[in-house]
Design a protein around this nucleic acid. Sequence first.
RNA 1: GGGCGGUUAGCUCAGUUGGUUAGAGCGCAUGCUUGACAUGCAUGAGGCCAGAGGUUCAAGUCCUCUACCGCCCA
Length: 926
Amino acid sequence: MADETKSAKSGADATRPAAADTETGLPKAYRPGEVEHAIFARWVDADVFNPDGKGSRADWSKQPFVIIQPPPNVTGSLHLGHAQRSTVEDLMTRHARMQGRPALFLPGLDHASIAAQYVLDKLLAKKGESRQSLGRAKYLERMWQFVDETRQTILSQQRRVGASLDMTRVRFTMDEFSARAVREAFTRLYREGLAYRTEALIHWCPGCRTSVSDLEVIPKETTGSLWTMRYHLLDEQTGAPDPDAWISVATTRPETLLGDTAVAVNPEDPRYTALIGRQAMVPFVDRGVPIIADSVVDMAFGTGAVKITPAHDNDDYETGKRHGLSMITVLDDAARINENGGQFAGLDRFEARRQIVEALQERGEMDSIKPHEMLLGRCQRSDDVVEPRLKTQWFIRVAPLAAAALEATRSGRTQILPDRFVKVWEHWMTEMRDWNVSRQLWWGHRIPAWYCPDGHVTVTQDPAGPVACEVCSRPAADLHQDEDIFDTWFSSGLWPFSTLGWPDNTPDLERFYPGSVMETAYDIIFFWVARMMMLGIHLTGEAPFHTVYLSGLIRDPYGQKMSKTKGNSVDPLETIEEVGADALRFALVNGTAPGNDSRLGAEKLENARNFTNKLWNVARFVLGARPASIPSGAPRELPNRADVGPADRWILSRAAATVAAVDEAMRLYAFGDASQILYEAIWNEYCDWAVELAKIRLGDASLSTAEHETTWWTLVDVLDTYLRLLHPIMPFVTEEIWERLPHLSSDPALLIVADWPTVVAYAVDADAEREVNALLELVRAVRNARAEARIEPAAWLPVDVYVPDALGPTFDALQSAIERLARARPLDRSSSLDSVRGAVDGGLSVIVGDIEAVVRPVARDEAQSERDHARLERELAEAQALLASARARLANDAFTSKAPPTVVEVARARAAELEELVGRLTQRLN
RNA sequence: GGGCGGUUAGCUCAGUUGGUUAGAGCGCAUGCUUGACAUGCAUGAGGCCAGAGGUUCAAGUCCUCUACCGCCCA
């Protein structure tokens, strides 16, 4: 027995053949794996993802809704972050589509220049090949082959999640759409002076052999060393180094001394005042350099004197510029010491460091070596230590672009959600340095700049290149194109409009630009959102979207970032196999708020799966409960107002409230709220009560056929509403169930294009809600009293109940339901409170609102009475405490005079209610 | 060094503009093969809302400070 229970709980029965309900033919448990592919195929066949598709029901008089998908890397595969973002994007798209708006969810892939090269290089290395051994043309050929193999992977994986992407418009950042946009954008920026080429200190990754932008350098805490070494002063007369006089400088990078062109001290530092203006000798290269004063030098750091290497350090570069120092590059592209490094030329940077330190120690010129905590910049891609170095590169002048982007967010034309990120955004956009857009890589868009032998630059959007040099008119044959390519993010920055055909004024650009929502994870707000905003506003004159929705990151159950190497990653595809796409989607949305990281583990997924199953089963029930008088396949009818019972009115009203609540949540982009509202409405109201009440009504022979039919149509009506509301979040199971429900003649064949529900005014019924709620409370109270008194749950016990006259008709209508749900039989409604009170006689007292009841156990039991007494005393104590605080509040003149009258009124009513309750409880206890 | 976020039930998290008794899932306890569902049902226990001040008739919610955790930027 125990084993059986265990195996059932662990889900091992999933392998057993489904026990199909004879009535409906539906399996007992929802089996997503058996239906998801077919449902997706139905959507595709119906051609509903494309707003122009034959199945589209888009109303073009409505504002289109457009999400251009953040393009995943072409070489990548689906991870949970993608799944989460696709879900959120897709649910917004589906919601808009059901509202009848032309809804476009445009898919794409990113060529991911540096990341793709990194992946391919590793594959090549396994075969003993390399970028260098293949050469540019062959290498790119291999890349295209590779990309052709991988490009379908992630697109098809996203479809497993249910993403309703319009595959007729799929784009790639290396396709001709993108290429044209890149050439055009760059040429315009160049002509406007916003793109320029200059030698500057850039970040160089020796592993990737390219420059990288500020953002691609990841500072990491590292324990390095602080070396303090002697630079001998030069004799002011002879210019020869003085063996007895030196200045000790502290550095974390001794090998760069080969490129030193000064020693700097703080002008306020009394220790060095006398030395300012003197010369010191850089060891090994034997170069005399000035001792300069600059206030950037931190007197507390090391000895207070630092070496200045303008060509290999960001701060030193600035210092060098201020003081007109020469800049000597001592590293080559592989980060080996170059010809300027004298005896160390040819050595790797770390080997050079080792040898220099050793040599200084041998000479006795090393004062000290201390461990030192510092931040070391590493390459985002390869993790190599990034070298600052001088290179001639293309830059985008960001200040004017950033100003326009800031104006867009400040004016509210683009809103950032959640709004706390506005501050981060502002800070970044104000401080941003010019963007180095050239990369010394091969996989990407080649920079459309040509140089003549005299060094003149010609930039053109013509793919064939210029006819002649713009400056000296040399023929094209004398010109050569820039070898470099663009930073991946340059083409990504054009994505919101390059995908729609920009720079041509295509119908798609006309209709779908600017887009609606840019949904992305907050960690690429600078990489991507900033660039789309800057380039979009500048090149098209409009902000590319009205809302930036920033998602949080998905973490494992312990709050760790998921990663394959850590082995804590959840594979979305495996999860879909196990629990279905809907459950995954629900788990990724429920309990999350925009911008907040969330954790995903087995529990959440299991809960979501259970919810899917709950929905499936209640649908099975509804389908199987169709009164025989309604023929199978009959078109749907709305509940007849003349025949509805109180419970029907109650759930119809609750459903209307749910529609309103979900609408509000969707309006606020509070998708976690929307999912929670639906979870509770479906499970706690519809399944737990509405269906239970309907069962009894449907089986009540004293009611007319019309009443039975109306109750069933009510169940169908509400289920239909919930399926529509839930569809954006859980598209598969809702579509599967909806297909089996009766439809109105105005309904389309598929839920995906069915109308979004509206609040039906006649369904709103405050009386029904209040009255039925009161009676449900009675049921709960009776159950509670029985459970607390430890009465056999199956026992039917007589109950006498008093309800106020106002509740009388509703009570009578629900009498048989209350009997069944509270296991109260016979259930006698007394005409007066006194007769109920008079009948207590050892029974259980139930007091709920202004309803009182007595549950009469078959056998008298002293212990049972005591437990009941104890429960009442607890209730009394609680009520008394609440009453005391309510009274205290009302006794406060400040409250009654200053609080809004409605609040005071509510408080008075509450106090009166509590007073009444205390009275009743006291009466029962005596 | 500057900035942002978090701290709410044993765990993971919701909590809209301040307004009755702070919610959910999981877990826990006690029961239940109730004619859709044991992936279920019923009932229950469990919270000084990190700490200290302040504003207010009223604070989980607004303000200030402190502590710890996390992230971003330099």
